[in-house]
Design a protein around this nucleic acid. Structure first.
Length: 531
DNA sequence: GCGGATCAG
DNA sequence: ATGGCTGATCCGC
């Protein structure tokens, strides 16, 4: 199950100040972190800029954050969760995953009962209302907990039919790894819901990569992680700090800033008891373009002097690359970290459950069980997948068959022409003004469509529209239908190769774009989502 | 391994 | 057109 406290910060604040109960209230100042029910009626939302919220709701009361208070309350809640699953997994201050299988068995309760009781108990003892989702895996449970919010619960039965039905109409954005960008890209090829995914399976891996393909298929099938473990057992991978400031330039100022950040990072490393073997410098230019540079010091570092010493060359190099560099953010991070935990060395991965050891203290984890297990993803019998496939085929048999064949052809063709790649020397863009670079392509140039390989006008909007068209089902159907004719068959080229540097390698540079068309074919391979 | 980019909370 | 911060992961090179 997944559990999510309702408007956590706001709820905690209300406990201290009952007079806020019936009035629009929000926590956070510049930006709302949470807001209560009354504020929401005015359209206030967490994550919203404070001034926008005030505009919507002038009588809104904004309170400053008080993390000590929230942490204390979170601890109360967790104490109760532990009695239902001692190995529950905190997902954030106000969210957790529990495996209540054992609890249900031992207490002879069905999941709904148990969760109902848990929620009642939390409410009674902490005065916090929570919403919960009950399902066969973490992904589904998380989605389900949002279904009856606030102060409600929702169960997705664990049989395949129910799960498939649930996913069928579920907007892709509801799934945890799908953000704004991916949602739009999926939408552009006609995928709005998880149920839509299967139909497009033939080219998903080509468009988004193998990982994303696997992820999407798991979305379609409603599969997800089933292993729930204490957050402390996840190994930290990096420690870093960064800060935004008003525009900054000048050698001295930048070095002062770097020095300061190095000192901050040293504190964090001290707190978490880590050293790092790789150092990453991050800057955001006044244009909002973000750059990172990394280096590997001769030894693992954690003292600010060393952090500064080894970061400085990267900064000076950037200064050379970018004349007149103006920054609005600087950050430093170490990766490939090693624990320098003193005392209490647990050679055998034994963990002292005693102290609620805050961050740090990553348990050496029972050995490099890297491969071990990994019930990362719930594994379903091949037969179930096949059954799903069969049912789907009943609906659109012809089309899918055709698609499948087409896909094979594409694969073959692609292998033939797979060697074209635009080197696109990065040095070519010396004056780092992505905007300008983009606008330079208006010449007589043409971009090749990655789908049909036909040259298209070198214009973002037109090109993207064309891609959308090329990827639309109708178009594919047409192509398939006329597949025996001499009509140009589809041909998939790995990357719209542009002989010159006409094709912007990273069009995402500069300000985020807002034109409705979002599909970026060449930037297509990437995908978040946790293992 | 490096650098860019997305996502979550 | 929402802001900033921290951390993780993916992808192409």
């Amino acid at each position: 199950m997944h559990i999510d406290c309702d408007a956590f910060y706001a709820a905690v604040e209300e406990l201290d100040r009952p007079e806020l109960r019936d009035v629009p209230m929000a926590v956070g100042k510049g930006v709302l972190t949470t807001c209560n029910y009354h504020a929401r009626k005015f359209g206030c939302r967490s994550g919203m800029a404070g001034f926008v919220a005030m505009k919507l709701c002038p009588q809104l009361i904004c309170l400053p954050l008080n993390f000590d208070k929230y942490n204390a309350k979170a601890k109360e809640v967790r104490t109760i969760l532990a009695t239902y699953d001692p190995r529950f997994e905190s997902a954030s201050i106000d969210e957790a995953y529990l495996n209540i299988t054992e609890y249900c068995n031992e207490h002879h309760m069905d999941p709904e009962e148990a969760v109902s009781q848990l929620r009642a108990e939390v409410h009674e003892k902490t005065k916090i209302t929570v919403s919960a989702g009950i399902a066969a895996n973490a992904k589904l449970a998380k989605i389900a907990s949002n279904r009856n919010k606030p102060n409600g619960q929702y169960r997705i039965a664990s049989d395949r039919t129910t799960i498939m039905e649930f996913m069928r109409n579920l907007p892709t954005r509801k799934v945890n790894g799908v953000g704004r960008v991916f949602e739009r890209e999926l939408d552009a090829i006609g995928i709005k819901t998880c149920g839509n995914i299967y139909t497009h399976r033939a080219y998903l891996s080509k468009l988004f990569g193998e990982k994303a393909f696997q992820f999407l298929m798991q979305c379609y099938l409603g599969l997800g992680r089933t292993k729930i473990q204490p957050a402390e057992e996840y190994e930290r991978k990096s420690v870093g700090t960064e800060s935004t400031f008003r525009e900054l330039s000048g050698k001295t100022e930048l070095r002062e800033k770097l020095r300061h950040i190095a000192e901050e990072l040293e504190k964090d490393l001290e707190r978490t008891q880590h050293k790092g073997r790789t150092l990453v410098l991050k800057v955001k230019l006044h244009t909002f373009e973000v750059l990172t540079r990394q280096s590997s010091p001769p030894k693992a570092v954690h003292l600010s002097e060393d952090l500064y010493k080894y970061a400085l060359p990267m900064l000076t190099k950037l200064e050379k690359e970018i004349p007149n560099m103006k920054l609005r953010l600087m950050g430093l991070r170490v990766t490939h970290i090693v624990s320098i935990k003193k005392g209490g060395i647990d050679f055998f991965g034994l963990k002292s459950r005693a102290a609620p050891s805050r961050s740090g203290t990553p348990v050496p984890k029972s050995e490099s069980g890297a491969n071990s297990d990994d019930g990362e993803w719930e594994v379903w019998p091949e037969a179930e997948f096949e059954e799903a496939a069969r049912q789907e085929r009943e609906d659109e048999m012809n089309e899918l068959e055709a698609l499948s064949q087409e896909h094979q052809q594409l694969q073959e063709q692609e292998e033939n022409g797979a060697s074209l790649k635009a080197p696109l020397d990065r040095q070519a863009r010396k004056p780092p003004s992505p905007k300008i670079e983009e606008n330079l392509n208006e010449k007589e140039e043409l971009w090749n469509c990655p789908i049909c390989s036909l040259p298209q006008p070198a214009d973002d909007k037109i090109f993207n529209s064309h891609i959308d068209f090329c990827l639309s089902r109708q178009t594919i159907k047409d192509v398939v239908k006329s597949t025996s004719s001499p009509t140009p068959t589809m041909q998939l080229i790995p990357r719209p190769q542009s002989s010159s540097n006409s094709m912007p390698a990273k069009r995402k540079r500069g300000r985020p774009r807002n034109d409705g068309v979002a599909l970026e074919p060449q930037a297509a391979k990437r995908k978040p989502f946790f293992s």
